[in-house]
């Protein structure tokens, strides 16, 4: 069972605030989807290698060369608040 307590925990990991009504609704939705997903339990995959990616790529490196890129000013332009050339956020600790 996927309980409302589970939903609250997952919502906090996901950094999404939910109200009580949403918590109840998502608990129903996720319970339904996860019980459908459980059909994978029918398969024995103990000897199967996982596929995280379909191309045979390992680490892709580029030469360590400086190329044109966004300036600090351009990169900061899209943020809500800046301070002394940095992103400004609400306080982290009391």
């Amino acid at each position: 069972m996927f309980t409302e307590k589970d939903v609250k925990y997952i919502a906090s990991l996901s950094r999404i605030h939910l109200n009580e009504e949403q918590t109840a609704q998502f608990s129903k939705d996720l319970e339904k989807i996860l019980s459908y997903v459980k059909k994978l339990e029918q398969l024995d995959v103990s000897d199967v290698k996982p596929t995280s990616h379909v191309l045979p790529l390992k680490n892709v490196y580029r030469n360590d060369e400086i190329k044109p890129s966004l300036t600090q000013e351009q990169a900061l332009k899209f943020s809500v608040e800046q301070h002394n050339g940095s992103f400004k956020v609400p306080k982290v600790i009391e």
């Binding site: 589970d6 919502a11 996901s14 605030h17 939910l18 998502f26 609400p90 982290v92 009391e94």
Partner: peptide, 27 residues
Amino acid sequence: KLVDMYEETRAQGFGEETKRRVMLGTY
């Protein structure tokens, strides 16, 4: 605090299906 800002930004900024999928994936 910072984490409250994250949670509120994503609560108001994301639609219902986005929240559902982000939570499913996180799980």
